[in-house]
Amino acid sequence: MANDREFVDKSLGSLNAPEGFAPNAAHAKIRLQGRTAPRSRRWVWAAVPVTAVLLVVMMSVPAARATMGMGEPPVSLEKIHWMLMSHWHSLVELVHGPARAPDFIAVDASGKTVRLSDYRGKVVLLNFWATWCAPCKAEVPWFVDLQNTYKEDLVVLGISFDEDGWKSVRPFIEERKVNYPVVLAYPGLPEQYRKIESLPATLMIDRDGRVQGTHLGLASKAQYDALIREQL
């Protein structure tokens, strides 16, 4: 039996970085420059609605209103609760900036592993689609063109919701000469992206992996082009 030192050496020796890991110093430099720049004062702006909400809540508590000699509250606590829940994500985004896109790992048509976080440093256009969805199919040639135009800085990533998987998807992407990775949605993935309620749906993810915009339904090629250029 190996002694403790050999046991630890063997265990730690098994650790390695993911295959094909190539740190990108140029992108890291840009991020570092962003971090050393003066800090954003977004929290100051966030304090305004938060204070307003707190005031409204206080004014709606019957006990507080009675102390101040005021009558019944014009807005019920239930309504305030509903309003807070409706706008909670907007408030969080105001303070913390856009949410990070949930990471996922899947396999493309060639069997290559695709992981969303591997594309950090590039702009990602994440498109949820299916071969049975006519508007989704209309967008595919645009994405092929956009991928060609911005090949250095953009990755279009397709996530197919076809129930029969590669049987429908593979012939389609071969016929349309799709030049970007396409993976299949798997159980659990749609729940990670809660805003995706219909197809097509497209997320614009910036170089730091944050969702800068979500578009549900068909958009024009020019719209996508403009959104991409905003992030470059």
Partner: peptide, 16 residues
Amino acid sequence: ARAIARVIHDNGRAEE
């Protein structure tokens, strides 16, 4: 970045 990736096995996060 490689030293971190070896421990956490996540390329994107290792670079961050």
